[in-house]
Write a protein that binds this DNA or RNA. Structure first.
Lengths: 127, 127
DNA sequence: AGCCGGTACCTAGCGTTACTATCTACCAGT
DNA sequence: ACTGGTAGATAGTAACGCTAGGTACCGGCT
């Protein structure tokens, strides 16, 4: 995994997991394998477990322990109300970032119109 | 600034600065104020200077010292070939992440079609 | 002269995050 | 008895952005 992705995942991986849990309740091992299927080839298992403990201690998820047919009991996480709000906030922040980045990327190919100073530019709200 | 953005910036801020430098040579103070105008309301000055030192030591940028009319001399950074490659890699990684996130977000509103296991799903290359 | 604000750069210490590596535990098949 | 898959946890490390300062140069004001 390129180091760039590792750094980019900081902050977003949490949102990813919360988004998964918004869709359906799940346990750590399940989430890890699902992420691998989604192309996040080698996200460390330990990372997910640590993340789940974090969001549990912050009260963003509810936990239920369920026995497994083939292994130790599972800790099934589900998003609660507070986690839902936090996830909404995450998506807003993510949208903010992607807008800025998209503008940067598209503004890079066509190089012009930037010597006329910073006037007349629509100034969106900052965060 | 929400803490979420702080974490998300890890990894991406570097790409942002490199992208700016790909457009035109610039110095730290200039980049900081420009970022503020772009909506990154309160990115710490120190963060930018530390970041510039980092990418300088990695050989991604060339540096030229130029006197300023109203202050200490400026350190003007410009992207070099190696930095260009690194920036390309950054955009690829960014595209990878945004694709996965976009899929997650849009898949959340319409909740269905995910109980039919992970077969027949086009498996894109992971990173 | 003294002071302040703007310009311009730098640094030490801190908190948060993901990764590495390793450990425990349960069960099925060989 | 051993291996492999399932399931969870943790100590230590590296990287990054932030906080909170500091230095230095210059012009205008009192």
């Amino acid at each position: 995994m390129p180091k760039q992705l590792t750094e980019m995942l900081k902050g977003t991986l949490e949102g990813v997991v919360l988004a998964v849990l918004a869709g359906r309740a799940a346990y750590g091992y399940e989430i890890t394998t699902w992420l691998r299927e989604q192309g996040f080839a080698d996200i460390a298992e330990g990372t997910i477990y640590a993340l789940l403990l974090r969001i549990e201690q912050r009260g963003l998820v509810d936990v239920e322990k369920r026995p497994s047919e083939k292994g130790p009991p599972r800790k099934v996480y589900s998003l609660n109300a507070q986690g839902g709000e936090y996830l909404d906030e995450f998506w807003r922040t993510w949208a903010f970032l992607t807008e800025r980045l998209e503008r940067l990327r598209s503004g890079q190919e066509s190089e012009h119109a930037q010597q006329q100073e910073s006037q007349g530019r629509q100034q969106e709200e900052g965060i």
